[in-house]
């Protein structure tokens, strides 16, 4: 069976939904953590957590998709080392997309503030209240986020290079309307 030349519609939808939500959660996290205490800050922190938990759940769905599907092959014109680098980068992105919300959830538990998803569903506390651990997890959450930022920029740069420099139909696997007809 020939591998398809594009991702399935559900994989594409999941990719862009997660991307859009991360593009909201990231700046929101930066903005809210510098605010001084106010009702607005408490609201934004809650929205941030809800966004993050939503991302976490969608990434779990993406992993199920990944485990049950073969992604479309990269164009054969791409060097083997570049293909390996792309795969490694994608794996790291998955690790961070779970590790970042995971560290946020852990941080909330350690700080003694349970996560109540959408204000409706109280998620279990992952660790007991522990101020020192909470501060460590806060730093971890921030560091993982800066790592994600760097890797996402690399990911975007690579996609743009393939689209505009190599012109090799890599990006169209995730954006089918860009496909150049052979």
């Amino acid at each position: 069976m020939a591998t398809p030349h594009r991702y399935t519609t559900s994989a594409i939808a999941l990719h862009w939904m997660v991307a859009a939500l991360i593009f909201c959660a990231f700046p929101l996290g930066l903005y809210m953590s510098d605010l001084k205490l106010s009702p607005l800050k408490l609201q934004l922190v809650s929205y941030h957590k809800w966004l993050g938990v939503t991302i976490f759940l969608l990434v779990l769905v993406r992993l199920v998709w990944r485990a049950t599907h073969t992604p479309p092959a990269l164009p054969a014109s791409i060097a083997a080392w570049q293909q390996r680098a792309a795969h490694a980068l994608h794996h790291l992105l998955y690790v961070l997309m779970l590790g970042i919300p995971g560290s946020g959830w852990l941080m909330s538990s350690a700080k003694g503030v349970p996560v109540v998803y959408l204000g409706l569903l109280k998620l279990p506390d992952l660790v007991g209240k522990n101020k020192a651990l909470g501060n460590v997890l806060e730093t971890l959450h921030a560091s993982l986020n800066y790592t994600l930022l760097a890797l996402v920029l690399l990911h975007i740069a690579a996609a743009l290079k393939h689209q505009f420099v190599d012109r090799d139909d890599t990006l169209s696997r995730m954006l089918p309307f860009l496909e150049r007809k052979p």
Partner: peptide
């Protein structure tokens, strides 16, 4: 001890 809710989070 006092208990209250903040964005419906029990504290």
């Amino acid at each position: 001890v006092f208990g209250y809710r903040q964005m419906n989070v029990p504290l």
